[in-house]
Simulated scan of single mutants.
Amino acid sequence: MSMLGPAEIRNLAQKLDLRPTKRLGQNFVIDAGTVRRIVRVAEVTPHDTVIEIGPGLGSLTLALLPEVQRVIAVEIDPVLAAQLPETVAHHAGPYAERLTVIHDDALRIASADLPAEAQPTALVANLPYNVSVPVVLHLLDVLPSLQRGLVMVQSEVADRLAAGPGSKVYGVPSAKAAWYADVRRAGPVGRTVFWPVPNVDSGLVSLVRREPPATAASRNEVFAVVDAAFAQRRKTLRAALATWAGSPVLAEEALRKAGVDPGARGEQLAIEDFARIAESRSV
């Protein structure tokens, strides 16, 4: 079992005539210590089936395979998807049978696209910066088997995902992620562990599945309130929810019914508050 270092990464890239693209958010981890740390912090076990989004050249995949039952790697780039099994066979031959590669867009993946006997229990990934939040929310939504995750994202995005009510960076991603999971920062990652080196630092985010708030409102109804509340951050909820409710008066009525101050702002509310507001109009 051998890991990919800077020389191996560059040799692979040269072989594939690979030029990392910003469009696909491609920044490859070249530091073996970082991927080992990710696997350790993710606390995966031999019973886990891990879904990895954007495996790229395979650095994290190689670190995961010895530790888990199976890795389902979802890669949008056809060249990288075709290369990954070869890389694993060369560097981690005894574990090659644990790898399943799916060439697809993670934002289109559904439970039915994955092996029925191997629904993922954990998400572990170095996520492309440009789609990190949509991917996390989508997978938590469509893969009920996911019980936890550890993702590496842009540091600023990590702050937003893990933020609680009252924080300056609390917003739509924070509230929606909280519908599905307990979310926290799990450590920083410097930019020099990537090739090419991005112009921002990264951060690890831990997600542990929890039950959504008990409410008669649907998830879509609750998320519609979240979207409306943060569409104009400086407005009071009475004003921000006016279009959603039909008028400022109806918004105030819904807020008071939910036990929420109409003069409050969205960044002060927890996901449970948004659920009560949605329920006040859905029943």
Rank of each mutant, 00 (worst) to 15 (best):
E253D: 15
N11A: 14
I76K: 14
V172A: 14
L84P: 02
V193K: 07
R70G: 08
E221M: 04
G58V: 00
L146T: 05
I102N: 02
A245P: 13
G56L: 02
H103W: 06
A42H: 07
L62K: 10
M1N: 11
V135G: 11
V44P: 09
S145D: 10
R234Y: 06
S132W: 02
E117W: 07
V157L: 04
L65D: 01
S155A: 15
A240G: 13
E75N: 04
R160T: 09
S174N: 06
M152C: 08
A110L: 05
V71G: 11
L18S: 02
H91Q: 01
V151I: 14
E75Q: 08
S2N: 08
D113I: 03
L107C: 12
L60P: 07
P188Y: 05
R37G: 06
V50I: 03
A73K: 09
A239D: 13
Y170L: 10
L146H: 12
L62F: 13
A258L: 12
L241D: 11
S174D: 09
A82Q: 14
A181T: 06
S167P: 04
V249I: 14
N220L: 06
I38W: 03
D31G: 04
A254G: 06
A122C: 14
P115G: 04
T61G: 07
D104M: 13
M152R: 07
L114I: 07
H47E: 15
R281P: 10
D273A: 15
T243Y: 02
A112P: 02
V79M: 10
E117L: 05
V225N: 09
V135K: 00
V88E: 01
D77F: 06
K235Y: 06
G56V: 06
T21P: 00
F274Q: 12
M1C: 07
E52C: 04
R19P: 00
G246W: 14
A275V: 11
H47I: 00
Y95S: 11
A217S: 12
L161M: 15
V205Q: 02
P134W: 03
D31F: 08
Q232R: 12
A32T: 11
T87F: 00
V157E: 02
L60Y: 03
Y95Q: 08
I51A: 05
L114C: 08
T61D: 06
Q69G: 14
A163K: 04
L84E: 07
T61S: 11
R148Y: 12
F274N: 11
A163M: 05
T100A: 08
I277A: 06
V29R: 00
I53G: 01
H103C: 15
V169K: 12
T61F: 09
A264S: 15
A82W: 02
H103P: 01
A181L: 09
D227F: 13
N126K: 06
L237C: 12
S280T: 03
R36A: 15
T49D: 13
E253Q: 15
P262S: 13
L62V: 09
P188L: 09
V249M: 13
L161C: 02
N220Y: 00
D141F: 11
S202T: 03
A163G: 03
V71I: 07
V71K: 08
P134M: 03
D31Y: 02
V136I: 15
V157N: 04
